[in-house]
């Protein structure tokens, strides 16, 4: 699904990702854990194609397609979804309009039919409910007046509607109380599929108690310093990042 090979990336002139390789097979859930400032969000932005995040070396492919030759919206249409650590507020663009525009833009770009207004509303309503957001939230400006937790759940609604092949979820668990964390975890588990993969970027073990990852990678100073099975999370919790450095 996702193959990253010897990735180097800079912000401004500052190298942040320094030779990162990762292989995420179809249907698997991997977690990237790492201390603050280790480059987790930078990695997600580089993969999504945010301006200002410059790839200086290495490759990344999604189902064999070179991500770095695609514009951000093309990567989304190719099946990449990035759940942002800090979702953006967009006053004046309703959540529903945003979602329908996004969904139809992706479908059009893949040569598929656009979704009918009725079908869209039905799914939007269902997914909003599944993630505990009201229709009022859906009609409001994107993330405007949402609490931190509501913003994260709104990212999940978007993921559920867009049905990506690969979901990068950047600290979707932070800022959630335990009930919201369960709602989010259920959503992820419900979407697990042999043809869909997840990369969960997280700071804490908490989310991984609810979503069992196939593998865990430790990111430190722009490199993966250790990889292992799910038991690595507990070890990290005990020993901290310093103790675990290889």
């Amino acid at each position: 699904m996702l193959a990253i090979n010897n990735l180097h990336a800079s912000v401004g002139d500052k190298p942040i990702i320094k030779g990162l390789s990762l292989d995420l097979p179809d249907g698997e859930v991997h977690a990237i854990m790492g201390p603050n400032g280790s480059g987790k969000s930078t990695l997600s932005y580089v993969l999504a194609g945010r301006a200002g995040y410059e790839v200086t070396d290495g490759t990344a492919t999604l189902d064999g397609r070179d991500l770095f030759t695609m514009d951000p919206h093309e990567r989304a249409a190719a099946g990449l979804f990035l759940g942002l650590q800090y979702p953006v507020e967009i006053p004046g663009v309703s959540n529903l309009n945003f979602l329908r525009t996004a969904l139809n833009a992706q479908r059009t770009s893949r040569g598929e039919d656009t979704v009918s207004a009725g079908d869209f509303m039905r799914t939007a309503r269902e997914e909003a409910e599944a993630f505990d957001l009201s229709m009022d939230h859906m009609k409001r400006g994107v993330n405007v007046g949402f609490s931190g937790g509501e913003k994260k759940r709104n990212e999940m609604v978007q993921m559920a509607l867009l049905q990506p092949k690969l979901a990068l979820l950047d600290e979707t668990d932070s800022g959630l109380d335990i009930d919201a964390l369960r709602v989010v975890a259920n959503g992820i588990n419900r979407m697990r599929d042999p043809r869909r993969s997840f990369l969960l970027i997280t700071h804490y073990q908490r989310l991984l108690d609810y979503v069992k990852p196939d593998r865990i990678h430790v990111l430190q100073d722009g490199r993966i310093t250790r990889s292992g099975g799910p038991e690595l999370a507990a070890e990290l919790e005990r020993e901290g990042y310093v103790g675990i450095a290889a």
């Binding site: 999504a48 194609g49 945010r50 301006a51 514009d71 951000p72 919206h73 990567r75 989304a76 249409a77 979804f81 990035l82 942002l84 979702p87 953006v88 507020e89 967009i90 945003f98 979602l99 525009t101 996004a102 969904l103 833009a105 992706q106 770009s109 994107v142 978007q158 867009l162």
Partner: peptide, 18 residues
């Protein structure tokens, strides 16, 4: 807003439409 533009693009919306 550049953040908003990126957000829309990351959801598949081409930049002119965003």
């Amino acid at each position: 807003d550049k953040n908003a533009l990126f957000y829309l693009a990351s959801r598949g919306i081409p930049s002119s439409e965003a």
